[in-house]
Write a protein that binds this DNA or RNA. Structure first.
Length: 570
DNA sequence: GCCGTTTTCGGCCCGACTGTTTTCAGTCG
């Protein structure tokens, strides 16, 4: 599917155009990129079936952009985009990835200091050449250096959410092939880590050379790092590497265990094997030279007297000890969620009417859906005021009167203002089925002040849930400064639920905090923060994060049926 | 460059915040 590739180019075109101060076109390209990125159908299919006319039916795509999509499908490139890059030969995406840097500043830096990329930028900032530029200053220079340091931390890693569609696609293709007997993803993808370095795939095959031929000749492959009978390695268009390993069936389980990792977990399991006079490696569990296990992972763990440990827990952070003591948690399952309570409709920033969101939720097998649109402080998202909330309630009641075995709940994602108050009056909050509160402004408060701000919001007698409690955006924005222990105590005392936001860029709470929340006896909820009905499926990333935080079904309130769920709300 | 319609061209989201100015440009959400 080329949708994402084209969307990415359109975003970049928008940035270059913005840099050249072209009016309105950047907005048009951004809009086209947005819809393309969220499109269910493959643009290539649309083009094949209906040609340019079909492409023009996509919202935000007109004659010109349709032509560019056609050009990319036919030639794999877009000439206008290349012209833009040639005119200002800088790595714009890299520079504006720094928080606070935009296309306009990037252009000035190029014109005045010939800065083309992060390396140039870092050098110039360190030599204090930036602070003296007109429009720049000391703080900007400091921000640049901090931003670069932050980017370096997450460099070369990709979001699980960007990687997963690629993994699912390639697994599907491989499973279809006759020469493939078994195939699975391994590595950090299988452990569902929030960011991923590269993709490891493991297969059993009767004809590995045929399989490897296919693997390296797929259309997404841009570079072949290596190709052999048991291992091939390629780089694909998304910019990440995929390794495919072929192992014998008798070693499939041990290879899967070995390549899933983590390295720390493997060191611990091998140590246990040694203590039992055994040897564990990717080929199996051995007593002397005799193989005693290897075909399945379960068999491998059993051979060293351990139960099968879920991949999401394999970090050597206590799971081995828990397994030895028979205390492994029974992790929440991927089909335990009964409804999503953080969803936006087209009453504000969302894409779909409530009716369509509910339909999509129902098709997922949910029993309920909560609509929680932004409230008035967030003008940019057309946040709702008290009066609009009343109107929205009427619509929801009307829809509910027609629904059987499904219920739409009326909530709101209110804003925690700087002083900890809520941007919606208590009178209006009281009428909602539940109320979420979240921070959407002034992220850079001091630790103590920020903690108090959130705790004050939790004390509001109508607030039930705190959304994305730490505010981080993975690879882009650090979490805000809070005393998490204090927040946990307040949540426990006040009966406030903390959200595990499933959006791949947020995954907030993160795994470590989830575990601490569970230990503190704080209840959580897994939501998607969907702004489009397609995003409801992102719930799997929230669940995997919860599993990485050792969470059981009982810790999560939206695993409960409706009547029990409601008991958690004030 | 797209859209919608007043069907041929005007409008396109806009306020808060920051850091830099000395009244505002750029960025963010």
């Amino acid at each position: 599917m080329k949708n994402q590739e084209i969307a990415k180019i359109f975003y970049e075109i928008a940035n270059y155009l913005e840099m050249e101060e072209v009016a309105f076109k950047p907005y048009a390209y951004q809009r086209a990129a947005n819809t393309l990125g969220a499109l269910e159908e493959d643009v290539e299919d649309i083009y094949e079936q209906e040609g340019l006319k079909g492409l023009e039916k996509i919202p935000g795509v007109g004659k010109n952009i349709a032509l560019k999509i056609e050009e990319y499908i036919k030639t794999g490139r877009i000439k206008d985009y290349e012209k833009l890059k040639k005119r200002t030969p800088i790595n714009l995406g890299e520079i504006i990835a720094i928080q606070g840097m935009g296309p306009k500043q990037a252009r000035i830096l190029y014109q005045k200091l010939k800065i083309k990329n992060l390396r140039d930028l870092e050098k110039a900032a360190k030599a204090h050449k930036i602070a003296s530029l007109f429009g720049f200053g000391e703080k900007t220079e400091k921000n640049i250096l901090e931003g670069i340091a932050f980017l370096k931390k997450s460099k070369g890693r990709f979001l699980l959410g960007e990687i997963m569609p690629v993994v699912e696609e390639i697994l599907k293709e491989l499973k279809k092939r006759n020469e493939v007997e078994k195939v699975s993803v391994a590595g950090s993808v299988r452990r569902m880590k929030e960011t991923i370095g590269d993709i490891d795939i493991l297969a059993v095959s009767k004809n590995s050379s045929k399989l490897m031929d296919f693997f390296v000749s797929r259309s997404e492959v841009v570079k072949i790092w290596g190709k052999g009978a048991t291992k091939s390695s390629v780089k694909v268009k998304g910019g990440f590497d995929i390794d495919l390993r072929v192992v014998p069936a008798k070693s499939y389980g041990s290879a899967l265990q070995y390549f899933t990792g983590s390295k720390e977990h493997n060191i611990a399991t091998r140590r246990i094997a040694i203590s039992k006079g055994l040897k564990l490696n990717e080929y199996g569990v051995f007593r002397g030279s005799k193989i005693i296990a290897g075909r399945t992972e379960k068999e491998v763990y059993k051979a060293i007297d351990l139960p099968l440990i879920p991949p999401e827990m394999r970090e050597n952070k206590g799971e081995i000890e828990a397994a030895l003591e028979g205390n492994l948690p029974r992790l929440i399952n991927y089909n335990d969620i009964k409804g999503d309570l953080h969803c936006h409709s087209n009453w504000n920033g969302g894409a779909n009417p409530i009716r369509e969101m509910a339909k999509a939720a129902r098709e997922m097998g949910y029993q309920y859906l909560g609509i929680s649109d932004h409230t008035k402080f967030l003008r940019i998202e057309h946040g709702l005021n008290e009066r609009q909330l009343v109107q929205q309630r009427k619509e929801i009641e009307k829809l509910n009167s027609k629904l059987k075995n499904f219920h739409i709940l009326h909530g709101a994602e209110t804003n925690i203002l700087n002083d900890g108050s809520i941007d919606i009056k208590d009178q209006a909050l009281k009428k909602l089925d539940y109320a979420i509160a979240g921070i959407h402004s002034s992220f850079k408060m001091k630790r103590g002040q920020m903690t108090e701000r959130i705790i004050k919001a939790m004390k509001n007698p109508h607030i039930d849930i705190i959304s994305h409690p730490t505010g981080r955006i993975i690879k882009r924005r650090d979490e805000y400064q809070i005393n998490f222990e204090k927040i946990l105590r307040a949540a426990k005392d006040l009966g406030v639920i903390l959200e595990i936001n499933s959006h791949p860029e947020r995954l907030d709470l993160k795994d470590e905090y989830i575990r601490r929340a569970k230990e503190a006896g704080v209840k959580m909820i897994i939501n998607t923060d969907s702004h489009h009905k397609n995003q409801l499926s992102l719930i799997k990333f929230g669940i995997s994060q919860a599993r990485r935080g050792w969470v059981e079904s009982d810790d999560i309130i939206n695993t409960k049926p409706l009547n029990q769920l409601l008991k958690y709300f004030k």
